[in-house]
Amino acid sequence: MVLPSFEFLLSSAAAGAALALLSMGVTLTYMTTRVSNFAHATMAITGAVTTLILLDRIFAGFRDSPLYYGLFIVAPIVAALVVGALAVIMYLVAIRPLIRKGTSLIGLMIATLAFDIILNNLLTVVLQLTPAQTVGRLLEANVKGYLVAIYVPLVGYIYPHRLLLPLIALLVAVGLHLFLTRTPFGISMRASIENPQLAKIIGIDIERIYVVSWFLSGATAGMAGSLLAFEMPGISPAAAYLYIVSIFAGSIVGGINSIYGALAGGFLVGSMEAIVPVMLSDLYQLLTGSYVDILRYQRMFSFLLLILVLLVAPEGLAGIKWRGIRRG
């Protein structure tokens, strides 16, 4: 492969889109409540597990009918609602009481790690205890088996669901932009991010805004996780431990105080993680004739990018001039 195929670019774009959504979610709750949420990757995995359960319990019965494709519509929505609710619960039960007690930044971070451990272990139980442990196998046997490639002239075979991730990410980005700039609630949300004291004085219900930001963060994580379920080679809660590195890398590369920056940073990190190792492997093969699997080091690229940004421009892509969502 000297030139990347369309299919490969599409799957890389899907990976980038998923990470854009996830980095955006981490940035959102950081900007509103100043919490670095280390449970975010596990939330995405929760979305993936939700999708598997839907597939196992409901859609498996429609395998041979066109109704089956409803999964791609229903699953992201259900996952968004489930994980959004979960994020709100996390905020109300674990985070808000601590913020009100004046817990330090480090205390809040370790609280999200604690929540992460609890959720991750609960997911392990769910995955292993679903009847006859079908879910774990469902992924390899069913999901992959269910996916149908469509022939597109000039381009070749593509998996239509892969279009879905970039499309949904784009929709969410545009929707979020409109929400933040056109709706009264979104505008007061921006105001309270920029100046919480002032927002309180002019009567904005800041608590409600925090809850909504956690919901949006969780919902987008659930949606991304649901769509990633179709991309992943296998779903295990342990995957979250590594994935969180990429999510934060995207958030910091974009600039941790900018939602648009996070979308861009996440997309950059996610697609780069998919493209660069493969390109390097190919290059290596071209030069030496032997094959080396660089893909297994893919998280290293996001880490290196993260370090580079921390060293050179800690404010990230959003930088100093174009800060956060002040525009518009």
């Binding site: 670095s36 280390f38 480090i106 971070m109 969180i244 590195v245 934060f248 890398a249 910091i252 941790i256 996001s302 880490f303 993260l306 370090i307 921390l310 800690p314």
Partner: peptide, 8 residues
């Protein structure tokens, strides 16, 4: 940032 860098 320190927390994230160390974890990563």
């Amino acid at each position: 940032y320190l927390a994230i860098a160390l974890l990563a």
